[in-house]
Every structure is written in structure tokens, then in C-alpha cells.
Design a protein around this nucleic acid. Structure first.
Lengths: 209, 209
DNA sequence: TAGAAAATACCTAAAAACCAGTAGAAAAAA
DNA sequence: TTTTTTCTACTGGTTTTTAGGTATTTTCTA
């Protein structure tokens, strides 16, 4: 079996070197490049075959998410493994949806890295132990008390998210637009927000839409 | 190293037998039990040490989700791997939330099963290839009509979601509020929406926030 | 069945958002 | 270097939202 052609992308050269050293003795993979930004990576990918990309999500030129998408769109055979210090749940989940095959924190052991690489190149997804803890932790939303909405408020919230004005909504429900205004105001009060934009964002974060 | 004490829980006896046969020759694990419902499993767990549970989510007496939680609450050292035919995205995500260390479809290969067991007992999470596809699928659809945003537009979109007014944003970026208005208008045009409320909702659905 | 919660509706006035254009400067791409 | 895109800013007008309130009726529910 051929060795896995592997590249490392990280804005810290130290991390690149560290990984190179760590993986030097792996007999099933070969580090063929280390890049400090997304543009360099894409340029390399256009010229050379690559099996595996070890990718940091914070890069100077382009977000790791977009980069993920771009790599997957153009080089679908290439496996992406995220190696990051980001411990936010939403970020982790997003990377997977953008085509990454796993997520590890930078303090992962070589053993974990091996494990995840093995799973990833076989097409599976693998999260390291620390990442598992983050994922299983209840989301912020669940900790934060989600406001208790009445039936009407939910209806109106949903129509607001569809871009309807108070008047539109009033017509739809055979109400006075003034009534809708009141509901709208109560909604904003319950969510402790200043305007509809923030209202919709908050509602979305709490999975109410 | 001791063998992994493994139990199988599935309401189809055939599946239990099949798995037993399949895993009989694995030298790192030993099947110590096969149960067709949750009560039997819990009763066994109370009397015997178990390292790994291969669990189906559809059981006659109790939902796999609840069972997962109960196992993890009482026997936190026990690893749970879901083995199911459910292909709904939300169910898969939920099992992880409830403490499972992985998810495989029943048509997975022995190789995949091995891979996931290995990852799971080390504390990682592992999804089989088919499951990966399910997880990544819905977003691909969403990505189709994702508008291409400029850097400024992204910045402004993000501040809008925080409930900032055009004037607030203008101050933050040392711009005229009229400029921010223009960006805001362009954003709405790109997303084909009528106002910020819908804009935020659309952006959220496309994971741009 | 009384009291609480929810839904309804109104007033005023300021603030902000939205519409439909135009247009120069700066930056990026070809 | 030329072309295109992005960012910037404006005019002028309309619509909608937001921020204070208050108040009656309906619907739960304890």
C-alpha cells in the first residue's frame, strides 16, 4: 500500500514542525508539505495529489470552514482532518458538515491522532476524546433559560422570520396590526433583545425556528 | 490486556447471533451477553462488569435514547456503540448527545465495526462511512443557493445579527451610516429577502452565522 | 369560580429601516 | 494595464419598527 500523502496547514510554523516530527516515523504516511495559509494549500493541491489534509480552522487568509468546502468541492478524494484549539461546539459541528472527517484538539496524543487518521482515511468520522466531551456537553442554549412563549407568540415569531411585517401578520391572523406590535414587543422583551434581527438570531440559536 | 467484555442489545435475535458469529474470532473482545430489550440489559449491568454495549435504538420496552442516558448515568465507564438502521440525521445526532460513542448502520463491514470499536473504547467517537454521508448531506443542499458575500457584507451581517443598528455599525467601522445602509440593501438583495428578520433567518439556515 | 395569564387593541412620537436610484474611489482580478 | 468588483457615500422620500404607556376581553387553571 502506498503511503498517505499528507499536508499540514497551520498558521503557526511551530505546529507544522511539531507535527512533522511527530509523524515522521509513521510508516503509513508521508508529510509532503506544510503551509501557513489557505491560498498556499489550494495552489499545492492544484499541482499535486494529496490524500490527507491536517487543517487548522484559524488561518490568516481564509476561514477553515470555507477552505473545507473548497477542498471537498474540487478534490473530493482528499480527506480532511481538523486540528484546532477551538473548543466551541458549533464550530466543531460545522466542520463536519463542511466535509471534514474528524476533529482533534492540538493537545491530542499521537495515539489519538493515529486513531483518527486511520478512521478518516477509511471514510469514517472520528472525534478525539476531548472533543467528545465538548459535543456531549449540553449546549449553552439548554443551560440558558429559554423564554417561555405563548402560542400566538410562536406563530408571530415564525412569520417574522419569514420577513412578514406586522401588517402582513395582522391580516393573516385577522388581527389589528397594533396587536401584532404588542406581541412583537413582548417577544423582544422575553428574549431580552433590541430588535427583530437579534430576535431571530436568538430564536434560531435556541432552536425555536 | 484483558478482553473487552461486550454485550449486544437488539430486538432481533438474528442480529444478535450474526454479530456474535462475526465477532467470535476477534481476539480483543469477548461477547458475554445478548439481550433483546433494555430491562434485561440493565439487570445484567447491575450484576456484571461490561466494557462495551452494542446497542440498537429501537427496542420493545424503552427507547434507545433513554437507555443510553441511563447506562451512562449509572455505568459511566461503559462504552456505548449504536448499531442501527435508522438513517435520520436528527436521531444520529441525538445518540451522541446522550452519551453514545459512535453510530453504525447494520450493513457496515466488519472492518468498519472493528475501526469504530477501537476508536470508541479509547474514548473517541466514530461514525461509519454511510453515517458520515447522512450527516453531511443536508448541508450540501443548503450550499447550492448560498450567496457569495464580500468581506464587508459578512462583517455587517454578523453585527446585524447582534441587533446593531446601521448607525451602530457605521460607528464601529468608521463609516457613514448611509454606506452601511447600502451594504444592508445589497445583502438583502443577495439573499432575496425583504427585511433583516428574513435576512438573519436565511443566513442562519445557511450556517453563515 | 376567582385570579392569573394570554390575547386583544389603542395612543403618540421618535427612530430606524426600506426603496430606488446615482456615482466616485479603491482594490482586486484578468 | 485594463476591467471588474467592492467599498464608499449621497439624495429624497415612504414605510415600518420601536419605546413609552394603558386597558378590555378571553382563556386557562388552581
Amino acid at each position: 500500500m502506498n503511503k498517505l500523502l499528507t499536508v499540514i496547514v497551520d498558521d503557526h510554523p511551530i505546529v507544522i514542525e511539531g507535527l512533522k516530527t511527530l509523524l515522521k516515523n509513521e510508516d503509513n504516511l508521508e508529510i509532503v508539505g506544510g503551509f501557513s495559509n489557505g491560498a498556499q494549500l489550494l495552489s499545492y493541491l492544484n499541482r499535486n495529489p494529496v490524500d490527507l489534509v491536517l487543517l487548522d480552522v484559524t488561518l490568516p487568509d481564509i476561514g477553515g470552514m470555507e477552505l473545507c468546502q473548497m477542498i471537498k468541492a474540487q478534490f473530493s478524494a482528499t480527506t480532511i482532518l481538523i486540528l484546532s484549539n477551538h473548543t466551541e461546539r458549533s464550530i466543531i459541528m460545522q466542520t463536519i458538515q463542511n466535509g471534514a472527517s474528524g476533529y482533534l484538539l492540538k493537545n491530542s496524543s499521537l495515539e489519538e491522532l493515529r486513531q483518527c487518521i486511520a478512521a478518516a482515511v477509511k471514510g469514517n468520522i472520528c472525534y478525539s476524546k476531548e472533543v467528545v466531551e465538548i459535543i456531549s456537553r449540553p449546549t449553552k442554549n439548554q443551560l440558558r433559560n429559554t423564554p417561555q412563549l405563548t402560542r400566538r407568540e410562536k406563530q408571530i415569531l415564525s412569520l417574522l422570520a419569514q420577513g412578514k411585517t406586522s401588517q402582513n401578520i395582522a391580516q393573516e391572523f385577522f388581527l389589528s396590526s397594533l396587536t401584532v406590535d404588542t406581541h412583537r414587543r413582548n417577544l423582544m422583551q422575553k428574549f431580552e433583545v433590541k430588535n427583530v434581527a437579534e430576535l431571530i438570531a436568538a430564536a434560531h440559536q435556541q432552536q425555536l425556528l
